[in-house]
Simulated assay, not measured.
Amino acid sequence: MTTIDLGPAPAAPTEPWAGVPRRVGLTLPELTHACETIGAPLPFEVATHLDDGLDARLGQTRSAADAEALDRAVAGFGEGSTSLRRRDLLDAGGTLDSGIAGALGLLATPEVVIDLDVVVDGLRGRAWHRQKGEAAASLATVDGLVFELSWYPSAAWSTELGRTATVPGETARLTSAVPEQLKVPFATADAVFEALRTGRGDLVPVLTEGDVVVSRALEALHTESHGRLRAIVATTADPENPLIGTVSWTLVNDGWRSMRTVSLDGELTLLITSVEPSELAADLAPVLAEVAR
């Protein structure tokens, strides 16, 4: 298994990073207060509902109802500082647990950034992974209300990335018509997906020039889709000119397929490859190497 690592740390990691990964669950109020305590920003924007009069004119919109439900849920957690103290994660003097403080500090000042957005059968999860030297940390959530904060040595990062791509156990594994390996000209694949998206499946044989294998594979990739994974990769070596790369996976009946666009013999080509969650780090490594150059 390939471990993503951009080199030795500028200094030895402190004690909280040693050993196996540590994890703690935090509610949104707890996470927000913890970040405020050490002066670190959240790695995401908290959705807020601003009444601009639209609801009054058109009635309550779905987004407004969702925002109100979120507000009620957050209010139900109570004050973040109170629950952090009750859990012995914040002392009477306002000092945050050292492990949590270190993890949140790394999330705010990383060398390598990976943002993951995963959808499986309509259920969406997001994870923010950050690495610096010999230390890495991540923050993940499904509902935006309860988060898992983890911190660990960089050597364990590849395993932690794989956790984000792990499909729920209750998700059925069926036979798939999508090959484990397939190369298709990108222009052909793009045209076929657009035809299928707009209900013009009759154009697929024409677009694939009668290639039955490619036609069936691309149609199956479209109809079998149970979810997707998107990864945005960046480094902070040059904040003024950040370099960004992406990785895309699609979940079909029997598991994940990596969707990578490469240049082969001067032609832009879509490579479709069967992958396991444990291979996410290996799939990200070439993209990291490219943005880190």
Rank of each mutant, 00 (worst) to 15 (best):
A177Y: 04
A177F: 09
A177L: 15
A177C: 10
V178F: 09
P179M: 12
E180I: 07
E180C: 12
Q181W: 11
Q181D: 12
Q181F: 13
Q181L: 11
Q181Y: 11
Q181A: 15
L182R: 08
L182A: 11
L182C: 08
L182S: 10
L182K: 08
L182Q: 12
K183T: 10
K183I: 00
V184L: 07
V184P: 01
V184K: 03
V184Y: 05
F186S: 00
F186K: 00
A187G: 04
A187V: 12
A187W: 01
A189S: 13
A189K: 01
A189D: 04
D190E: 15
D190G: 00
D190Q: 14
A191M: 10
A191S: 15
A191G: 06
A191Q: 14
V192Y: 08
F193N: 14
F193L: 14
F193S: 13
F193C: 01
E194F: 08
E194W: 05
A195T: 07
A195E: 05
A195Q: 07
L196T: 04
L196D: 06
R197E: 05
R197Q: 06
T198S: 13
T198F: 07
T198N: 10
T198H: 05
G199E: 01
G199C: 06
R200L: 02
R200A: 09
R200E: 03
R200C: 02
G201Y: 03
G201L: 02
D202N: 13
D202M: 02
L203Y: 05
L203N: 01
L203P: 03
V204E: 04
P205Q: 02
P205H: 02
V206H: 09
V206T: 11
V206F: 04
V206I: 06
L207R: 01
T208H: 04
T208N: 05
T208V: 13
G210P: 06
D211P: 05
D211T: 06
V212T: 14
V212L: 11
V212P: 00
V212D: 13
V212M: 03
V213M: 11
V213S: 09
V213R: 13
V214K: 02
V214Q: 04
R216W: 04
R216S: 15
R216F: 05
R216N: 15
A217I: 09
A217M: 10
A217P: 08
L218F: 06
L218G: 08
L218D: 10
L218I: 07
E219W: 05
E219N: 10
A220V: 11
A220L: 10
L221E: 10
L221A: 15
H222T: 05
H222S: 13
T223P: 00
T223D: 15
T223C: 01
T223H: 12
T223E: 14
E224R: 13
S225D: 14
S225Y: 02
S225T: 14
H226S: 13
H226A: 14
G227C: 09
G227H: 08
G227P: 09
G227W: 06
G227F: 07
G227Q: 07
G227E: 11
R228N: 07
L229S: 03
L229D: 05
L229E: 06
L229V: 05
R230G: 06
R230C: 00
R230A: 07
R230L: 11
A231V: 02
A231G: 06
A231I: 03
A231N: 05
